[in-house]
Design a binder for these strands. Sequence first.
DNA 1: ATTTCGAACGCAAACGTTTGCGTTCGAAAT
DNA 2: ATTTCGAACGCAAACGTTTGCGTTCGAAAT
Lengths: 354, 354
Amino acid sequence: MCGEREVVLNMSVTIKDVAKKANVAPSTVSRVIHNSPAISEKTKRKVRKVLKEMGYHMNENARNLVTKSTKAIGIVMKNSARESLYNPFFPEVIRGIGDFCNKEGYSLSLTTGETEDAIFEDVVKMVQGRRVDGMIVLYSKKDDKVVPYLLKQGFPFVLIGKPSTNMSGITFIDNDNVQAARELSEFVINLGHQRIAFLGGSPEFEVIQARLRGFQQAMEQAELNVPKEYIKLIPLNRADGIKAIKELLNLPEAPTAFMVMDLLLGVLLLGVLAEKNLKVPEQVSVVCFNHSEFIEFLSTPLTTVDIHTYQLGFEAAKCVFDLIANPEMMEKSIRIPTKIIKRESHFVVKKENK
Amino acid sequence: MCGEREVVLNMSVTIKDVAKKANVAPSTVSRVIHNSPAISEKTKRKVRKVLKEMGYHMNENARNLVTKSTKAIGIVMKNSARESLYNPFFPEVIRGIGDFCNKEGYSLSLTTGETEDAIFEDVVKMVQGRRVDGMIVLYSKKDDKVVPYLLKQGFPFVLIGKPSTNMSGITFIDNDNVQAARELSEFVINLGHQRIAFLGGSPEFEVIQARLRGFQQAMEQAELNVPKEYIKLIPLNRADGIKAIKELLNLPEAPTAFMVMDLLLGVLLLGVLAEKNLKVPEQVSVVCFNHSEFIEFLSTPLTTVDIHTYQLGFEAAKCVFDLIANPEMMEKSIRIPTKIIKRESHFVVKKENK
DNA sequence: ATTTCGAACGCAAACGTTTGCGTTCGAAAT
DNA sequence: ATTTCGAACGCAAACGTTTGCGTTCGAAAT
């Protein structure tokens, strides 16, 4: 009967086209699309048939314009996309966010800037340009402009990480990094280690500060000394990583255990140790933050802390949706538990008499 | 004078607001924003001042609606976001795309679907919903629905990879994977290896097929036999990877060299070899496709093929822009060169008398 | 003093939706 | 036969831009 299965090319069919063909008003078509109870089943059937026939698909821009929503959320990467993308943290958190958004029919928009300023510009464009309904900020650091901006704009966003102490009104998802680092430290201490190094990323990131505190608390409680040289807070790249690691290994009293704050840095450490013929775990213990499926591809079975990155992303997305639905919602914070995944990258130190 | 530095909160300021305050018509404001020559410098200055004062920012939805463009491009990931995201290929290609788009003031939109069908739905929503001006498809495989759909819609897109042979009209960016694999094979053959295994991803991906052909060509030319058991085309995950590797190692005549098609698979191979106490490069040679900065974090200095992933992304983005600007443009294909990065994961075989 | 003519702007429609309000209309109540 | 009253729809404005065309207006030409 209606044998016209021609492909409607290029120019898209609008609600008005459908309305005309179905002999109803555009508003009726709109209500059918949204399954409004104000339309009779008979009309709905008729209109739906035409919708299918003509291959109608909504123009989201028009819809966004009138409803003032976009069905998209933005993701703010940390300063250098370069650093941010390589780290297994990123894909994992994106997957968590993406899964939730997909479930809700939302799409994802990424910042593309490489520098901090470019990223800020991206954020402004997303927010003011009304391209997204909400944002997720993937980091928390000192002297960041993005979070204060979003706060001032009253724009719905959630932070992955803990906000700077002097800010309130921020909904955030985080691990208890102090606690997690303390536990991990205690684990290493209980193995008998006394010379423990702390190898982490830039101190400007809150997560590093928190873990450092946890480490220091545990060391203090165990009445162990932490020489300044044992703490390396460095940018996450190969050159700085190797430099820091070599400095640690060349110390007169080199550490016997390393607490590493980042998986890639851990991988790098394993590399340098192998090069120097230092066996893990026989001679050196290594424990590392941020578990990832990825580490299963490595040869050394690294003991890691699982911060449940996927869950961080998933919950962050969920919170953004709550915020969008109810902008006046009280701020809240969600804590995702951490778990030490014990594998074989550590050894028990024989009791020394001090 | 104009001491009102009040933050305009929540409700955004529109062109009309600016027009009223500047005592001009909305159209004039619009023309000032686009720096139309039809407006006098005097008026431009006046309007620009008000624009700044009021903190105007364009509503992109309204703009998109009338201009029928979106200033965004979509990225189609390969089937499982899970697999796709972990691989260093992804961040690198995204960075290439992102850098170009950022330069042009475009934003990026990702598919969030996990299954093939969900991804297809995402694509339809992006295209029909007029959310993006163009698309970049990150893979080429058999029985894919996305590419034929885009083709039928006449929607601007470029493919990273080589399209299925029976399709035309597709602009694509690719390496010469046949050639690259042949060169790499010849490199390994010239080291004296005769028993060479080919360890790759799913055969449904065109890239794997191409590299396999290159490998076979080189082997044939060197008059070397390739037993069926030496070719392992498997999904990219830990379990299947380990299974395939072990099967290869347990062969009565185990290969002395491995050509691996994926970096993560290469890392996995190194792990299994270490476990079995097989030294690289002393006992086994490993060469691997897809160089990445990431491999510098590894202990074994792997010899890899640099496919210039960043460049693939960058050129793909550039092509999409060309296509958007000129939709009737003739299809074209761009070939990105490859380069073998020689490091120390291979050894020279002493001449055997066969 | 009138006409001509660009330069510089304004009017108003258009993009494709949504939605408050009004209208129609048939059945039920009077 | 008239009124009442929901149910079911249509009208038209609105969202915030862009842009073709018309209008204004001052200077130059006549």
